[in-house]
Design a binder for these strands. Structure first.
Lengths: 335, 335
DNA sequence: TGACAATTTGTTATCGATAACAAATTGCCT
DNA sequence: AGGCAATTTGTTATCGATAACAAATTGTCA
């Protein structure tokens, strides 16, 4: 069997004239060795270009896996990009490595990803979303590691959760739009029947309509992913069927901006003729002549909180099961 | 020492009445066992809810690490989001797990990330960029695993490369803009002194200007990250200093769109008064009333090629050192 | 049927670190 | 100096799989 020949603890131990257990202790930086020993060992490790072997370390112990799994719907979304960036950099800072997966809202794909990840005995798991297959839930239970569900707090967490209520986002926006005097209000969505969180926002929005005795006049839910184009076309479709609409709530800002592009191109004045509200607080909205009415999501903060909460738990300290991240309605000037 | 109690090969072996070596062979799906044995073993594995232990497998062998490292500048960029998405899904399909890092154009951060990843003895490494510290290069050499540099082909690859020439992107666009009759041309960039690839595009662009005997009239290179806002402000600055400009080439589409927002807000007509060219082919450009003049980057294809190339090499088959991914100038209607 | 090849199965050693415990050394106090 | 505690260091067993080789079984053909 051909073996790697890189420096190992035993080589350092021999060179420094100590046992490899002592070297192990020094390398892990705890206590239980004299200053002289530490200096000698570190000098030899440096000279021999020692590269720690975490596979062997994880194998020999129960506690030292530093891999953390992160599964999101997709990395091409601006919000998930910020979450990923934040989680990765914070976990890295705390000494963990991030193993990623994406499921595109297909719970079975999350399960398949989790199965391969589980073979690596990760220290913890972060899942964006709350819809899981029964096998996923059972596997997570068997793994017995901390799990944080990100993004949505609509349902009970499996273990821990960091996020906010999408229902409340929709509810709050719905109340705001109604309060601005809009009466013929439509919803333009995406990923029909697949995206539970967009659906939760829609439900919240409809609840606000019901409160105000305003039936949600129209809905246009595309089957595609949310995108500028989906918003553009969705707006075209909903207005063709419902010419009298005076406000539109979109799945997200990207679609809202696409919708605004449609409205601009057809001489329909934003706010004056029709109100537009988005969700997500994406930077792209900054190019609009008027500030977009939307809900700001602190994606970076969410990732940071999640990473720190996971590590706190891994270190054995107590943490709250659920952390709510504050979202903020940005009134803007488009409704 | 408290140990995990999950099912191991030995448990299956005992239950199925065979040796654990036979179970190992069956689980890995090769040959060297009868159909009857395989069925018996798989049935027991299923009944006992066997979860493979890749840490032990990787430890016991030289060949079975399935972790692949991916380091990009940041995950919040649309293009890198697409690359990440594509690499992750393709590596996953081929049986590998993706461990991510981001360096935000700081070579030292890439090195630190690589050092922690190296401890996991990854099967391969994907790096977006070609600027590395000496220690990074030495570590990669010692690791002796396939390395693919993504994105830029301007310099010689360390091992393998998948990408395109940023210099050529700038050169081609520069020639196009000059050919459209523009004579007073400015460049609006970002991450001054940090981003080598944006710089390469700028160099190519300037080379085209020199060819056409057009000195690049003005440059405005922000220190910030590229963003809509950076493009907005950069445009304001460059025009304040150079009112006569008749074309602007931007670091990327995001900045170009920000620039267009500025121009629109000040009644400056795109194309008629001033030409605008971007880079990247981002979807957000689809909201513009006219199609943006830009260079389309096939980020998804690039990721797929890189993932497949890495795996081909890992399987021991021959691959080309360098794969060029075709970029495409989109004439659009803004220059 | 016998001989030899091909296939299937088992045995033993091993990867590189850590846990648990034991032993040796050092420090501190009276 | 003596005795006890605290610190430092070493020894042994072990994690769960795979590689290499050996043995047993099955298959094939003259």
């Amino acid at each position: 069997m051909t073996r790697k020949t890189s420096t190992k603890l035993e080589d350092i131990a021999r060179a420094a004239g100590v046992s490899k257990m002592t070297v192990s202790r020094v390398m892990r930086g705890g206590t239980g060795f004299s200053d002289a020993t530490r200096d000698k060992v570190l000098a030899e490790a440096d000279r021999l270009q020692y590269l720690p072997n975490r596979i062997a370390a994880a194998f020999g112990s129960t506690e030292t896996s530093t891999l953390v799994g992160l599964c999101v719907p997709r990395f091409t979304s601006s919000l998930f990009g910020h979450v990923t960036e934040s989680i990765q950099s914070n976990l890295s800072r705390l000494g963990y490595q991030t193993v990623i997966g994406s499921h595109d809202q297909i719970a079975k794909d999350e399960e398949l990803w989790l199965k391969t990840l589980a073979a690596w005995r990760p220290a913890g798991i972060l899942l964006a979303g709350t819809r899981h297959t029964p096998d996923t839930i059972e596997l997570l239970k068997n793994l017995a590691v901390p799990v944080i569900e990100l993004w949505d707090l609509t349902t009970d967490p499996l273990d821990m959760a960091v996020g906010f209520s999408h229902f409340d986002c929709g509810l709050t926006m719905g109340r705001y739009v109604a309060q601005q005097g809009r009466r013929q209000i439509g919803y333009v969505g995406a990923m029909a029947g697949i995206d539970t969180m967009g659906r939760a926002r829609q439900n919240g929005f409809e609840a606000a309509m019901a409160e105000a005795d305003l039936p949600l006049t129209a809905k246009e839910i595309a089957h595609d992913h949310p995108s500028f184009y989906t918003g553009f076309v969705g707006t075209e479709n909903i207005l063709a069927r419902n010419p009298g609409l005076d406000a539109l709530y979109y799945h997200d800002d990207e679609m809202a901006i696409g919708g605004i592009a449609y409205l601009n191109r057809h001489g329909i004045r934003i706010k004056h003729d029709i109100g537009v509200a988005g969700w997500g607080g994406m930077e792209a909205a900054s190019i609009l002549p008027e500030r977009l009415t939307t809900t700001d999501i602190p994606a970076g903060a969410l990732g940071k909180v999640a990473a720190e909460k996971l590590v706190t738990r891994l270190r054995g300290d107590a943490v709250d099961d659920v952390t709510v991240v504050a979202t903020r309605l940005i009134p803007g000037n488009t409704v």
